[in-house]
Simulated scan of single mutants.
Amino acid sequence: MYAINHRVGIQAPSEQVYEALTTNDGLMKWWTNDVSGAGDVGAVIKFRFNGSGPDFKVAKLVANNTVVWQHSGNVPEAWKGTEISFQLSSDGQQTFVNFSHSNWQQATDFMAHCNTKWTVFMLSLKEALESGQGKPFPNDISIDHS
């Protein structure tokens, strides 16, 4: 099994970071501007990019600490069986987000692409919380010309 891992420090309280990961409005500020369904454990979040995109079931929530999503329905084939988690911790000055997209079956070019895009979106999350302006799709940084 393979995983994508990132760690980013954000100058914002863990409560604000958690809200950005668990509400439609919060998610739309950093990942894609078309999100619906965010909510409690069991909710299915629909992330849309030009009308299509992945769905994730909220598998675990621990307030201001843990967010875990599992694929549900419409996801790229390589994402089936994968899990996305955000672990939050604070040192008093910043909240660290330990991000993981785990359980990949193969390390492929698509995984490498997703690794880079997750970097783009983790930095968008940081910008959204620190400056009030993230770069969610379609305003994110493009990493190829397709």
Rank of each mutant, 00 (worst) to 15 (best):
T108S: 15
T119D: 15
E77H: 09
E77Y: 07
A38V: 04
S124L: 06
W69F: 13
Q11P: 01
S72P: 03
Y18D: 06
G26W: 03
I141N: 12
N33M: 14
Q87E: 15
G92M: 06
K80V: 15
G132N: 00
G73W: 12
D34L: 00
L88V: 09
Q70K: 10
G9D: 15
I4V: 06
W31E: 08
A107K: 13
D91K: 02
G81R: 00
K80C: 13
K29Q: 12
S90Q: 09
S90V: 11
M122S: 06
A38L: 03
I141Q: 14
E83S: 10
N24F: 03
V8Q: 00
G92S: 01
I141V: 13
W31Y: 12
H6A: 12
F96T: 15
F56P: 02
F56T: 07
S102H: 08
K46T: 14
F99R: 09
A128F: 04
G9W: 12
T22V: 03
F137I: 04
Q133I: 10
V8R: 09
N74Q: 13
L123P: 07
K80L: 15
L123G: 13
F56K: 10
I141S: 10
Y2R: 02
F96Q: 13
V68F: 06
W118I: 12
I4W: 06
A12V: 03
D40N: 11
A20H: 02
F86L: 02
R48G: 10
H101A: 10
V41Y: 05
T32C: 02
W30G: 10
T22I: 01
F96D: 13
A112W: 01
A112L: 07
N115Q: 15
I4F: 08
Q87I: 14
T22P: 04
P54D: 11
R7A: 14
T22N: 02
P13F: 09
G73H: 07
E127P: 00
V44K: 02
G26V: 00
N65E: 15
N33T: 15
S100D: 00
V68S: 05
D91I: 09
Q94F: 08
E77K: 08
G92C: 11
Q93V: 14
G134T: 06
A3G: 03
I141P: 00
L88R: 03
I84C: 05
V75T: 15
P138I: 03
M28I: 12
P76R: 09
V97C: 00
N33I: 15
W118E: 11
T82D: 01
G81Q: 03
G26I: 08
W79R: 02
M122P: 03
S146Q: 13
H101I: 05
W79A: 11
S85H: 03
I10M: 02
D25T: 13
G9A: 15
V97Q: 04
W30Q: 00
G92D: 01
D91C: 05
S52T: 15
H101G: 05
G51W: 11
V97D: 04
H101F: 05
V35C: 03
A59E: 09
S142N: 13
K60A: 12
S131I: 09
N139Y: 08
S85R: 05
K135M: 05
M1I: 08
F49G: 08
N24G: 10
W30Y: 07
G53K: 06
A38N: 04
